[in-house]
Write a protein that binds this DNA or RNA. Structure first.
Lengths: 128, 128
DNA sequence: TCACTTTGATTACAACTGTAATCAACAACA
DNA sequence: TGTTGTTGATTACAGTTGTAATCAAAGTGA
């Protein structure tokens, strides 16, 4: 399960996103929630759900005619794996070059900086 | 060119990596350098080079029978775009949740923390 | 000059993706 | 009860990707 997570495609991830918002959910609900942002045909969403089930990212229980779907791992679990994988590929596992890139790019906002500072304080209070 | 960068596949990126190490370079050199780490068939590497040329990520000049290839943008340019794209997809553009994930995961090393601190100092000295 | 080598170009082919359409089973309405 | 709509399952189909093999042109050694 740890490895398959990487194999979730972008479209599949968007389906997972709305599932994490609220689950269990029927396909029709998922379609409806998705279409606040995108315009995917119902059939498309069903296909993506099917693929997610095959990939063991989503499970379901039957409620009569229809299924109620649920994600099989937490969003945070996925984001951590995806982040780690990117940082490994691009920066041999070092996080700071990524942050440096953001800083250089003016992509770093004051809120981010404040959040980073408390993360660092926290980290330092935990490590010696 | 800014957008196409995202469309560089993982295998293609590895070819770019060794090109950035040193260029211009002939296909044979690239194959040789790549095979310090992997075992890709020469034909495979040629295919990837071709695709990179089509995607305008790599250019070349002819030197008689063979080509000398060069990357058409900097590594940092690519890593910044890829980082930004991931952070947007996973954290709506906010960097700190990514760092928080690393911290939670024990993936944050002392070196990283020190680097982050100087980045923050730097940022703060530049902003008001 | 002829067979062989090297190089880029073209073609191959299966798996994965995005984006659906069709099918089969059941439910609901007329 | 026959028709229609809904739901998941199966099939479709082109584009991308990983991983090469084949082809054609040019250079090389005998």
């Amino acid at each position: 399960m740890e490895q398959q997570m990487a194999d979730i495609s972008k479209a599949e991830f968007e389906v997972l996103e709305v599932l994490w918002q609220q689950y269990p959910a029927a396909a029709s609900d998922i379609v409806e929630r998705l279409n606040k942002k995108k315009t995917w045909h119902e059939k498309t969403v069903k296909t993506l759900l099917n693929r997610l089930v095959k990939k063991q990212a989503v499970g379901f229980i039957k409620e009569q005619r229809r299924y109620l779907y649920s994600p099989l791992f937490e969003r945070e679990h996925y984001t951590q794996a995806a982040s780690k994988s990117l940082v490994e590929r691009l920066f041999s596992g070092q996080l700071s070059p990524l942050v440096a890139g953001f800083a250089k790019n003016k992509k770093l906002e004051r809120d981010d900086v404040e959040a980073l500072k408390s993360l660092i304080d926290q980290w330092e209070s935990e490590h010696d």
